[in-house]
Every structure is written in C-alpha cells, then in structure tokens.
C-alpha cells in the first residue's frame, strides 16, 4: 500500500466490467444462451465515501459485488483497487488484497457459523492478519466488540444467543478485524426492524468517519440510500442507467427508470405515480435482452430509436451520467 501522503484518493475504480453466465441444456450440457448479468459497468469509490448501488432483484447488483471481491472472475473490464488491476491477479497475489476488501451480508443469521463462538469467528480474521498471540488477539477482540457497541463478554457466546441487530454488529466486527479499506454492504439493514436499522446505520456512519472506510452500499431501499450515500448508481438488467451524486439524483433524476424507482418509494412524501407504474412489470430475465436500451419494454418514452443502437452515457451535469438519449436531448424527463 502507498504511504499516507501519496495515497490514492480513489480506492476502487471499476471500468467496463462484464460478466455473462452460460446457460447449459441437454445431455451434453451444450451452451444454449447467456445471461448477461453485468454489462459495461463502470464506477469509482473515493476513500471515506459511500457509493450506493440500487436496483430491483436480479439486476446484477450482487454479481458486481462478487466480481469486485473476486469470488467470480470478470469476463471483461478492469477492477482497480488502490490503482492496481486485480482482475489479472492469481489467488496467491490476491491474498494480501483480500484483507483490504470485506463484505457484510443481508442475513446475519446465515453468515455466522453456528458452531463457533463469536470470539472464534472474529479471531479467524485476526489470525489471517497475522495476530497469533492469544493475549493480543483477546485485546483486539475486545476493542472490536467495543467498536461495534457490544460487551466483551459476548465473545464466548454463540450466534443463536443474539438478536438480528446484534448479529449484524458481530458481522461488522468480523469484517473490521482485518482492517479493510473497503466494505461491501449487501443489503445490511433490509432484514432488520426499524429501531434496530437506525442503530446499525448510525454504527456504519460512525465507523466510516473513525476509520475512513469506503462503502459500496447495495440496497433496494432508496430511503436508506438517500440518507447514507454520497453517490448513487442505478442498475437495471446489468447496465448502470444513471450515475450521479445522491443530491443530484434525488433532486433532478433524469432516467425514466430512476423516476419509476423514486415514485415507488413508500414514504410520507411521494405519491405513487400511477401512469409510470402502469407500464411497470418486474425485471424480466436478462436471458434474451432486446437490442438497444434494456429498459425499453417498461419505458413510457420508448420509441423506434431505442430499439436499435446501444444507448451510451450522456453527461447531464458535473458527475451526472444518464443512459438515455431522449432525456439528454430534451434536457429533462
């Protein structure tokens, strides 16, 4: 890693990332088609900042997360972590970098080993980061638990003894044990009750400012994203449709899909846009996407041109990109 002074301001940069999954059928498992899970996805995350990745289920959010962590290999494109391209690294070269990137999951029940005490689970990470000395481990363990707002006595207990919110805290402590620079949060508060959700969100914000963490925050909850994120990327069927600072996205959304998502937010202010939602169907599969714009089937602005050329990003303002030629031409939705 670079020295403090010359540190790269961008912790993660993803360029034209692509991942297709083959569909195999028949006795010989012949490839009969491709699921285009991630297509030309590009974004940047600055140190100490949060990028929100939003979209409906099946849009490719989680695949992006797995590509960044190299749990999957990308077909094309670059992932620059701290200015180093990790897509070409082999398992051995990747190992030191794994400490730098951690993930916390939606389901705190499923992501902790039920047979290991909380202390053992977290100590796994400490061993990996080279702390083998028992007393040092315990010291660090105590500090980590305190950091996430749990008592040091919790370390001898098992995951089933804790509530959902506490388990999520344990998951966060485990992620922090290797002192990562980037944490991928995959729907970390979706399964929690409102009062617990607020506790975890506050905790994530506190840790970010204490440790200068960067987050990739994957969520379908636009209320949480609007509260927590600095920048937002809206994903639909593998493509990023709109990419903008959170304020710009919420105040001046351009893409019809962003409008659809915003109008569906169940909150006290927005009215459900009946007209827009009338055309809304669920994300159909990414199996045989139409040529041209991937949103055309649900889009109220759909016209002939959308069916043909691949739709490129248009610049709508500083750092505000939109994948829709029509709103770019009209200057508004």
């Amino acid at each position: 890693m670079n020295e403090m002074g010359s540190r790269n301001a961008t912790i993660l940069q993803v360029d034209n990332l692509k991942k297709y999954f083959p569909i195999r059928r028949g006795f010989f498992q012949k490839i009969t088609g491709w699921v285009r899970a991630v297509e030309n996805v590009s974004f940047k995350i600055k140190r100490g900042k949060t990028l929100g990745l939003v979209g409906e289920s099946g849009c490719g959010k989680t695949t992006v997360a797995r590509l960044i962590l190299k749990l999957l290999d990308a077909d094309e494109g670059q992932i620059l972590f701290d200015a180093q391209d990790i897509t070409q690294l082999d398992e051995k070269e990747m190992k030191p970098l794994r400490k730098e990137m951690q993930i916390i999951f939606q389901d705190p029940y499923g992501s902790l080993n039920p047979r290991m005490t909380v202390g053992q689970s977290i100590a796994e990470g400490l061993k990996i980061s080279g702390i083998h000395n028992r007393s040092k481990q315990n010291q660090r363990l105590e500090k980590l638990l305190k950091m996430v707002g749990m008592s040091p006595a919790s370390s001898d207990r098992f995951p089933h003894e804790f509530s959902g919110g506490q388990r999520q805290r344990i998951g966060i402590a485990r992620a922090l044990s290797v002192e990562p620079a980037l944490i991928i949060c995959d729907e970390p508060v979706s399964a929690l009750d409102v009062s617990i959700q607020a506790q975890i969100i506050n905790l994530l914000k506190d840790l970010q400012s204490q440790l200068e963490l960067s987050y990739l925050f994957i969520s379908h909850d636009l209320n949480v994203v609007g509260y927590l994120c600095d920048k937002v990327a809206v994903m639909y069927k593998g493509h990023i449709m709109e990419y903008a600072p959170a304020d710009a996205l919420f105040d001046h959304p351009f893409h019809p899909y962003t409008h659809l998502l915003l109008s569906a937010i169940p909150d006290t202010e927005h009215k459900i846009d009946a007209e827009l939602n009338a055309t809304a169907d669920e994300v159909s599969n990414t199996l045989n996407p139409p040529s041209g714009c991937s949103f055309q089937e649900r889009c109220p602005l759909n016209e002939e041109r959308c069916k043909h050329n691949p739709i490129e990003f248009e610049k709508m303002g500083p750092d505000h990109l939109v994948r829709c030629w029509k709103v770019a031409r009209n200057g508004s939705y």
């Binding site: 009062s195 607020a198 909150d267």
Partner: peptide, 24 residues
C-alpha cells in the same frame, strides 16, 4: 415518535438518526 424519528430518508442526511436504545 421514536419510530418516526428513526426512519432514514434524504432529508435527514448529515444528521444522526434517532435510534431507540435497547431491544424489544
């Protein structure tokens, strides 16, 4: 009151969310 105050949304950005201490 506490439930409503603990809901995150855009307008509360930058402010700390109210969180109800303890659990049910």
């Amino acid at each position: 009151q506490a439930l409503l105050a603990s809901l995150p949304n855009r307008e509360k950005r930058g402010q700390r969310l109210y969180s109800i201490p303890g659990t049910v």
